[in-house]
Design a protein around this nucleic acid. Structure first.
Lengths: 209, 209, 209, 209
DNA sequence: TATGAATGAGACTTCATTCAT
DNA sequence: AATGAATGAAGTCTCATTCAT
């Protein structure tokens, strides 16, 4: 029976992860020292190791945490009765996420995770798991749309899902670089691309109406 | 007055960069030690510092090197008389580059450069310079296409350019992660998106013919 | 006024010492952490410090504990009327102790104490006190034997005592190393050496009879 | 081709081992820090790791070094034509070694090696190898002595060798503890024991003559 | 120019001990 | 008395960079 409650424990853990997120966002995984995280979190050097066995575990925990949001969005989209509306909802939500100022740090760390995934197997697994769940959710929506005749049958669901995600990945990257871009115009363009390329003429006609 | 010829010097420099590329691709910038590069290059520890003042300079030099190819592609696309053909050529060339097995290491290092650009100003400048030149080249083609009436006037050239690049960035990333994907299907989809969304009906009709 | 009885307190203390003995035997003093002892004893980290002020005190307490057995053996030997029989009894008892499987851990820790005594004054005092008491007991027996004419007068009691103890120290060491040795043969040899070198011809003749 | 000669390299290595010996003798293996060794050796922290991969390697190297002398003594004893003279020579040499003031530190470290051998397999192997070679050399001398009729046939060579070594181990220990002992008396006693117990009457008679 | 040994600051992690509950 | 979370000093080892040869 732990002396501190599970809630308190989770709170401390989050405190460390928050501090780490800020540090990693600013300096990157490797240039961030455990001392930095300690300083940022207000805990002691030793306390860090009561919650995470190694610095690497903190990185992995952050990568794993990122899935939570994605899982939620996927579930939301899948719950839509109409697959086409589900797709548009997903685009809408991810697009809105792009501009959320509170997630700047998460996105910056996410990008570092992409790079880290190339050489750190644990990060690779974590990042790929998140990616795959989104890809599968989108592909599933597309398949359902094809079944209902709303989405063109010649569209390859998996390739389309990957391509859609790719656009967002690229935009996340460009935004993180501090590029001053017209996100609204990009959004319009992307929605146009999806409509023009995935949806059948009947759906497009109905939408215009 | 250097005792070795400029040619010889450039040769050594390249030898170091080649070794660094292999190391960085395998282990990342930070996990690669100068000793690793020395071992991989066959030079001596001291020799490294005759050609690069710091390890960071090697990273920057590699980032700068990456532009060479992009500059060439952009020039090629711009030299096309017909902007629509120029755009399609660019897509074709970049798409082909995706599958070039000889550039696996460069792409892996490139992704690390994306992340590094978030915190290292010199890398940021280098990466952004390359990115901006491509973006400008594409936007310019789009503007020319709008002038000739081949590309829809409501398309925002810069946003479109960014979005097109974003797709490729995302695909590069997914490929580097080792994903087994149907690149041909992605290519078809992307070309379809471009045609459906950027080109005017007249151009699309002419193409179909 | 302590809330727990003195008996209970002593019980806990012994519980810690037992755990420490197992840990020290396995890993040595220095590689054993207080956390190891806590884990092995089933107590809590804080409880340890209710019974011992420092880790060092545990080591010292274990060293002190070792004397108990020796004190008993010495007393037993001294109580013998016949010094020669006392000597032989001592050899017999110590020799039997060598093969006692229940004391493997004590012997291993004892050897570590020998080394620790070289640098830790408290251990030095503890170990030396135990050693000296045995040495004095043996020397005393020898002196008594010389007084009765059973032991050769040219034997130096203290040197003989040290030498006898030395043999056992060496054998303890070799045994602890896991050496597979013929202890019976060693015993025969040692008894032979004692007889041949310490005892007068009269005693030897009497024994043979 | 190393820049520094093999001689110079060996010199530095020895410089570190000498410093380590002093530190280990004074503070023990575990209480000695690499910083201590660095300070004592006059080298830099990094230099240490050019010659030894880990602190543990230094400990092992010191343990291994100890064999050199033993190998020499064994060879010397074996080269004796007369096994009995060989045995007495060995006792003489080891006994003299006991009082060599220059080897105080080596003996102190050696004792720590005994303890360390109980838990560190590399040290165990190193220490046991040294021990075994001496034991084998003595047992071989005894066997040769039995073949020539100089040593009693009922003596178990291996047990006798172990017992002889045991005496020296115990005396080394007692000396290291700082005990003020009459080594000459011990020597006389030991020689007496060997003569009285191992040698046949013929040999003893010849010696007395 | 070229070598590679040397440097030393600093990183991660452990652990004896304390203290609020 | 008892708990176990918290502390922070200290230890081992790495590595970018320098410098004598």
């Amino acid at each position: 029976m732990p002396k501190i409650t599970e809630t308190k424990r989770e709170e401390r853990r989050q405190q460390i992860l928050d501090a780490a997120l800020r540090c990693f966002s600013r300096d990157g995984f490797h240039a961030t020292t455990t001392a930095d995280i300690v300083r940022e979190s207000g805990l002691s050097q030793g306390a860090l190791y009561l919650y995470f066995a190694t610095k690497d575990d903190i990185v992995v925990a952050l990568a794993d945490d990122r899935h939570q949001g994605e899982v939620f969005l996927n579930a939301l989209a899948k719950s839509e009765q109409d697959p086409v509306q589900g797709l548009l909802l997903l685009i809408e939500l991810y697009g809105r996420g792009l501009t959320d100022q509170r997630r700047i740090e998460m996105r910056r760390v996410g990008i570092q995770g992409w790079a880290e995934a190339l050489r750190n197997p644990r990060i690779h697994d974590s990042v790929l798991q998140g990616f795959s769940s989104v890809r599968a959710a989108i592909a599933e929506l597309i398949r359902r749309g094809q079944a209902t005749g709303q989405i063109r049958p010649d569209v390859e669901p998996d390739a389309a899902a990957r391509t859609m995600i790719a656009v967002f990945q690229g935009l996340v990257l460009q935004l993180a670089w501090g590029e001053d871009m017209d996100l609204a115009a990009c959004g319009t363009l992307i929605r146009g691309m999806i409509r023009n390329t995935l949806f059948t003429d009947a759906v497009r006609a109905a939408e215009s109406a």
